[in-house]
Write a protein that binds this DNA or RNA. Structure first.
Lengths: 181, 181
DNA sequence: GTCTATATCGTGATAGAC
DNA sequence: GTCTATCACGATATAGAC
């Protein structure tokens, strides 16, 4: 459905500017020129809507940043750098991903799957670096992968409270730590 | 006021079991045998109440774990280990700390201050290790401190989604990475 | 497919009696 | 200090017309 995509794209735009906390279904509906009920015609619930917004965001980021960098780790840094341009999306992600920690949250499965994928991707990346001799082969790729994802998430919390914190810089520093260890 | 403390202690207990998402002021009131209005007599708003609950938690953790360990880093690990016994509190903290990222959130100042303190404490700890020759003096204590706090926060998100993730183990691994670098 | 209108709900806040 | 009662509100969800 083209309309669904149109809604999600518009939603990303609104939320990037207004943040998650202030954004109701009604406002997203306004942004696409639909009524609240009209918008919910395309999604089974508010929670599903926001989950799909986040999925769309991943998709947009992936196609924007993954291909344009030679090494995958550079793409990762680029996404993080980009994040500081879209505070509302950072807030959206941080908020919903922690809500999804609740056993009954409808987006829980989505996030479990998402972390599984990112974890696999990242630990593969590290193993590749190990194979190439750029990271000590003794290091535990899985644990390091989890630590990178955790650092990226946790830095968002700090950055929202103090935007002078440079998220990308910190993650790059962690990378430096790992590559020289 | 003794009553305020009594309320906060009871609240910690309820939330540790039920989590944040499900917990309304009314339920906390029930737990201390007060009406909702009766409880709010002691706090200016729901948001202030939850902020104070988190402050109380820090206080409890600090007195429980800081003194019983010789080195401060061990206390840090102990708190993290303890966290996996109280999922509701992890959820509470994760949730409110990200909500506080909003510029208008009443608990924003509280968290800014809290991070400032933890950051200072942690980077001092690292500098001490550097002075003792256990951490390379070339490393940037401030950035590493932020990375530890970020990792601890981010691991909570992952752990809530997958409790088989060992938060303390991961943080200890990061410590190992830093001490051998 | 989209709208209008409304049901329904939870819940935080407040007024005022005791 | 504490309760009862009520308000106010901001949602989301849904029924039913067009």
């Amino acid at each position: 459905m083209a309309k669904r995509e149109e809604i999600l794209t518009a939603a990303l735009d609104v939320i990037a500017r207004n943040g998650y906390r202030r954004t109701s279904v009604r406002e997203l509906a306004d942004a696409v020129g639909l009524s609240q009920a009209g918008l919910l015609h395309y999604f089974s619930s508010k929670e599903e809507l926001f989950q799909e917004i986040l999925r769309k965001r991943d998709e947009v980021d992936a196609s924007a940043f993954e291909s344009m960098h030679e090494s995958p780790i550079e793409g990762f840094f680029a996404v993080i750098r980009h994040n500081s341009e879209v505070p509302g999306l950072v807030q959206l992600y941080a908020q919903v991903s922690t809500e999804a920690g609740d056993p009954d949250h409808p987006a829980r499965e989505f996030f479990i799957e998402r972390y599984k994928q990112f974890r696999a991707m990242f630990s593969q990346l590290i193993r590749d670096e190990q194979a190439a001799g750029r990271i000590d082969a003794d290091l535990d790729a899985d644990r390091i992968a989890n630590l990178f994802l955790a650092a990226a998430d946790g830095l968002q919390t700090q950055w929202m409270l103090d935007p002078s914190i440079d998220m990308a810089d910190h993650v790059a520093y962690l990378w430096q730590l790992v590559t020289r260890a």
